[in-house]
Simulated assay, not measured.
Amino acid sequence: MSVRNPARLALGVALTLSVAPAVAKDAPDPYVAKGEATNCIPIRSIRSTNVRDDRTIDFVMNSRKIYRNTLPSSCPSLGFEKRFSYRTSLSQLCSVDIITVLWNAGPGLQPGASCGLGKFQPMEKAAK
């Protein structure tokens, strides 16, 4: 590759390096804790999950009730991958259970870090 105008190339590199990627600001948390935390939630009632970060998962139930699980420790890549699996022999997911982050690696999902769950805190929309 030949460079006809080295000053133009330098300017292009400088502009490229000086542009910082836009970082999305985290939206304010719309929920507040309501009531006592519980050790388990019924698996059949889980409608969906929302991974908020490496330590926080909101479990949305069929009744639209939300239980927030704050893991005792950060779980590497959970907030980035936003997906996990779990195994239990019970019909409930409990604070003693382990989740495994699922990585998108090649032709399928691969297991990543395994992390323990915390208690399930009922949440409700914050009053405006």
Rank of each mutant, 00 (worst) to 15 (best):
L102W: 01
R68D: 04
Y67F: 15
P30C: 02
D54A: 05
S48W: 02
T49R: 01
G108A: 05
P28N: 02
K34R: 08
G116Q: 15
R64A: 10
T49P: 05
L109E: 11
G35M: 04
F84V: 00
A105P: 04
G116N: 15
E36W: 08
F80M: 07
L17S: 10
T88L: 12
V23T: 08
A105G: 03
R83E: 02
R68C: 05
Y67G: 00
C115N: 09
V60M: 12
T49A: 04
I41M: 05
A33N: 13
T56R: 10
V13Y: 13
G118N: 14
S73T: 15
P76C: 03
R55K: 11
G108C: 09
A22Q: 14
D58Q: 07
I99G: 02
E81V: 00
L17G: 12
I66G: 00
T16C: 11
C75T: 01
P107L: 06
S63E: 11
R55E: 13
S85F: 03
N50Y: 05
G106D: 08
S73A: 13
V96Y: 14
S74G: 12
L102S: 03
D29V: 00
N104R: 06
S95Q: 13
T70Y: 10
P28K: 01
T100K: 06
R44S: 10
V23P: 00
T16D: 12
P21I: 04
L117R: 08
T38N: 04
G35S: 02
R87P: 07
W103A: 01
K34H: 15
S18W: 09
G35V: 03
S73F: 08
T49E: 02
S91P: 11
C40G: 10
A20M: 05
C115P: 10
Y31Q: 03
N69P: 03
S63C: 04
C94T: 10
S73D: 14
L109F: 12
R44V: 13
L102C: 04
D58V: 03
C115S: 10
V101T: 01
E36M: 12
C40T: 11
A14P: 12
T38M: 14
E81Q: 07
A20K: 08
A14Q: 14
D26E: 12
A105D: 05
P30I: 03
V19C: 15
S85H: 09
E81R: 03
L102N: 06
G116K: 15
W103E: 04
I99M: 03
L78K: 01
F59D: 01
A20L: 11
T38L: 06
L117S: 05
D29F: 12
T100A: 01
G35H: 01
T100I: 04
L117Q: 07
S91A: 09
T16W: 13
K65S: 11
L90M: 13
T100R: 03
S45E: 14
L109S: 10
V101I: 00
R52S: 01
A37T: 15
I46N: 06
S89Q: 07
K25T: 01
K34P: 00
T88Q: 07
I46E: 09
P21M: 05
R55A: 13
L109Y: 14
I66S: 00
A37G: 09
A33D: 15
T100D: 06
G35Q: 01
P76N: 05
S95G: 09
G108Y: 05
G118I: 14
S95T: 07
V19W: 14
